[in-house]
């Protein structure tokens, strides 16, 4: 799928599946599957990923619609936050005896 030109034959589209395990929790990525359209992807996801009450809600997204960050740009994306330690409460020294802060 995707832009991979080495796959000469077209495969049945790939979808990524996200499950909300209970109300109050976020949807979480659980894996992928092949389906003709979103409706079929949801039906397949029910059979593959929620056979034992694993969830109350399913999201499916065509895999090719996801843009992922490149691991080689890790520094650019995630580096800067590491040297801004003043963003963390542990950066600050408080005099002894101060409470509830």
């Amino acid at each position: 799928m995707g832009n991979d030109s080495s796959n000469k034959e077209v495969e049945i589209p790939l979808y990524e599946v996200f499950i909300r395990s209970a109300n109050g929790l976020e949807h979480r990525h659980v894996g992928s599957l092949h389906a003709a359209d979103a409706e079929m992807a949801i039906m397949n996801a029910r059979d593959v990923y929620v056979r034992r009450n694993e969830g109350v809600s399913i999201w499916v997204v065509p895999s090719a619609c996801i843009t992922a960050s490149d691991p080689s740009s890790k520094e650019m994306l995630f580096g800067p936050s590491r040297d801004k330690i003043y963003r963390h409460p542990t950066f600050y020294n408080l005099p002894e005896g101060v409470r509830n802060i």
Partner: peptide, 16 residues
């Protein structure tokens, strides 16, 4: 049939 439907729905065209 699945592929024909996918092409019809443009799931493949759009994203593949």
């Amino acid at each position: 049939a699945i592929m024909a439907h996918a092409l019809n729905e443009k799931v493949v065209d759009r994203h593949g």
